[in-house]
Design a protein around this nucleic acid. Structure first.
Lengths: 226, 226
DNA sequence: ACCTGAACACCGTTCAAGT
DNA sequence: ACCTGAACACCGTTCAAGT
């Protein structure tokens, strides 16, 4: 009922809502989405919930536990494609689904990379990959490795993509200088091919590059059988 | 000459050594290697150099600049394979070389992923990839995209691998509980394939998985030509 | 027994005061 | 002009004191 004694915007939480672990985790994701990974501090999360910082420790044992809980929750946001579309469309769809979810919740990427995550919802994604590959008749080894390769590629790709998108956004709003490559400064005998093709700084990470790598992995998987 | 007034180990820096940007960056990598990313603070770095924290700001504009400089320096540690071994051995060798370097300097992985890096030494790696592919007769588009796919896969993979190796090390020293999957708790109608194969928690990230994904990408690239 | 404000041991960076 | 100690505005977490 009483307003929190701060200068920040008043908390959005209904005052009669009981604080639960689920409420804490969802608010943490909302904070992550709104203000990014660095903004997720115990103090600011507590403030958004209209609660004293130490009240959070009733529902999470520490910040690592908060991050682990929030990750398992975020995995539930990933739509799993249907099973009957074939292994190639299935794995490709799962990759695009994971990427879309991570781009929608860019703040989760840092904790996702930083800690192992074998919660029940991750296992559901793994089951989908195994089902696709075994139904298609691949060997047990490929059934395990191929979906893992696609998932690792996707998470790794987006882990690189998100900071570069955030950088691009800062360039647009004028708070960062755009990246440029000064081709004229490169010694021509060391950079002959670079100076012929002159790939722009945006070539390293973009949507077409994601699709190129994904399709190469899927082509390579196709060559292993079934 | 005078010892730093702290309780920490005395700094290893020779007292008559002039502080330069290069010395600062190399000590930052040494601190990263020795104690990990979280240990790299301006204050602790200054302490190791036997210098007051603000003295660092003479050589770097802020912590982001320190990280950018240290990344460009770390790229020089990556051995580039010879040019005359063919595109497949060349790209594969580059990937393994990048992975080995990152595993030797695990603390650089976090800043490497977190910010764009187009320093001159990165461009030298890119030039190597372009040279391999153009010499082999691939199209300009594939010459740009294929090395990028291999490099993104490798960096992304190791970004996931490093925290899991650190976790495994904590398990070995007894400070973390090992990850287990409780197969008995999984509802059998949702997890039929998982319960048949029962892949262990270590299957997601390991050396064989890295090689599997790398070979699939290389196979997929081979299919595009030349 | 439960809750929480104050405190602790840190951060990166600013800036005024010193030489 | 150059340098730097103190200070500021934060952290995550501990813990003693309060109800």
């Amino acid at each position: 009922m009483a307003a929190t004694p701060t200068t920040r915007p008043s908390p959005p939480r209904a005052t009669n809502e009981r604080l639960t672990r689920d409420v804490v985790l969802r608010e943490a994701i909302a904070l992550l989405d709104a203000e990014g990974y660095d903004a997720l501090t115990m103090r600011r999360l507590a403030e958004r919930l209209g609660v004293v910082p130490m009240a959070l420790y009733r529902h999470v044992t520490n910040k690592d536990d908060l991050l682990a809980g929030l990750l398992d929750l975020a995995v539930t946001f990933v739509p799993i494609p249907p099973l009957d579309i074939g292994w190639r469309a299935g794995l490709g769809g799962l990759a695009r689904s994971i990427r879309a979810t991570m781009l929608a919740h860019p703040g989760v990427v840092t904790p996702l990379v930083a800690q192992p995550n074998l919660g029940p919802h991750s296992l559901l994604l793994a089951e989908y990959g195994l089902a696709l590959m075994r139904t298609a008749g691949f060997s047990d080894e490929v059934a395990i490795r191929a979906p893992n390769a696609v998932i690792v590629y996707t998470i790794g790709y987006v882990a690189l993509e998100v900071p570069r998108l955030e950088f691009a956004a800062r360039v647009l709003e004028g708070t960062s200088q755009p990246l440029t490559i000064d081709y004229e400064a490169l010694p021509s005998e060391l950079f002959t091919h670079t100076l012929v093709l002159r790939p722009g700084p945006e070539e390293f990470i973009n949507e077409a590059q994601f699709e190129f790598g994904l399709e190469r992995i899927l082509d390579g998987i196709a060559m292993t059988g079934p």
